[in-house]
């Protein structure tokens, strides 16, 4: 039995420009201790998928139209707010992209770090403080005992992201959702933060849902990867399968557009066009207009379903995308 089982999650936003189907029937599961990646371009629905699970999307305009998210015998999508508060930040932790904006600049780190403990575990302030200091030690912040009384602006970007990780893990959650945690950091700090997430994950046995648009990061941290496009998963596979035997045209195009893998002085491969507007109905294969094999004839005329090619390797069954030469 998986730790978290998401079935047919559908979230849309009711805006003036129409109903935007941000997440359109997405299913995935997370096993204990595993790292599951969700990768895709901006606006593909990666973040909305995870925020829907924790009811963190603004409702209205957002609305969870359908689906189930089974976590420890509860359906998160049906959970009343009072109970959700016992899950969010306690059993499912979150870290965001930008540690500058996700920490409160007016409050000391100590205040912010012990807050989850005071709320969820009801322990005394002094006890919470010593646990917070231990947690800061564990994420590699030097001189934690004194630094904990500093304000966020006194920390560098990388150190702030460490504080965020400490804050998310202090309640020992079963799942940590990391939404582009290293996108705002430079390459050496990114390396440190990725290593830290991996180490803490191993020490605590936490499962991680890792959202990113960077395929190189995915290949380093994830066990299983879901590739998202226009609100749906187009391909799902173990990380090795995904990189050695990618099947969907979009996955292959994404891989080809990594600059590191291309020859100097050659024009970089790019995916033509833009992702589709999700406020309009997409009748067939959503990737068809951008697919290099885009005479359109070969592409599915109805939204293609995911089929399991081999064990745990799922791909959208669109003949055009499967056969496109990329």
């Amino acid at each position: 039995m998986a730790l978290l089982e998401v079935k047919n999650l559908t979230t849309s936003f009711h805006t003036r420009d129409g109903v935007v189907k941000a997440v359109d029937g997405v299913s995935f599961s997370v096993e204990a201790g595993e790292t599951v990646g969700i990768v895709g371009e901006s606006g593909s629905g990666k973040s909305v998928t995870c925020y829907s699970l924790l009811k963190l999307i603004p409702m209205p305009p957002g609305k969870i139209e359908a689906g189930q998210a089974l976590f420890d015998g509860m359906d998160l999508l049906q959970l009343p707010e009072a109970k959700m508060r016992g899950v969010r930040g306690k059993r499912i932790g979150l870290i965001f992209q930008d540690p500058m904006t996700s920490l409160n600049p007016y409050l000391k780190i100590s205040t912010q770090l012990i807050e989850p403990l005071l709320i969820h575990e009801g322990i005394s302030k002094s006890e919470a403080l010593s646990r917070a200091i231990a947690e800061m030690d564990a994420v590699g912040i030097p001189d934690a005992k004194n630094r904990i009384h500093s304000y966020p602006h006194e920390f560098s970007g990388g150190m702030r992201q460490r504080v965020m990780i400490a804050m998310a893990l202090i309640t020992r959650p079963d799942i940590l959702i990391a939404d582009e945690p290293t996108t705002a950091l430079d390459v050496t700090i990114q390396r440190q933060v990725l290593d830290l997430i991996k180490t803490r994950q191993k020490e605590l046995g936490t499962a991680v849902v890792f959202i990113t648009h960077d395929l190189a990061v995915v290949s380093e941290v994830c066990d299983y990867v879901n590739v998202m496009y226009a609100g749906r998963f187009v391909e799902r596979a173990g990380v090795d399968t995904l990189f050695t035997k990618p099947r969907h045209a979009y996955t292959r195009a994404l891989q080809r557009s990594i600059p590191a893998l291309q020859k100097k002085n050659e024009v970089l491969y790019t995916i033509p066009g833009l992702p589709p507007n999700l406020a309009t109905e997409i009748p067939g294969c959503a990737f068809a207009p951008r697919c290099p094999d885009s005479n359109g004839e070969a592409h599915a005329k109805t939204r293609p379903e995911l089929v399991e090619l081999e064990s745990k390797h799922w791909v959208q069954n669109c003949p055009g995308c499967l056969s496109a030469g990329i």
Binding site: V187, T188, Q190, R191, L194, D214, L215, A216, V217, S219, E220, V239, D240, F243, Q255, I258, A260, L261
Partner: peptide
């Protein structure tokens, strides 16, 4: 700097 680049495996 070079060792910090995430590598595609």
């Amino acid at each position: 700097l070079l060792s910090a680049i995430p590598q595609v495996r």
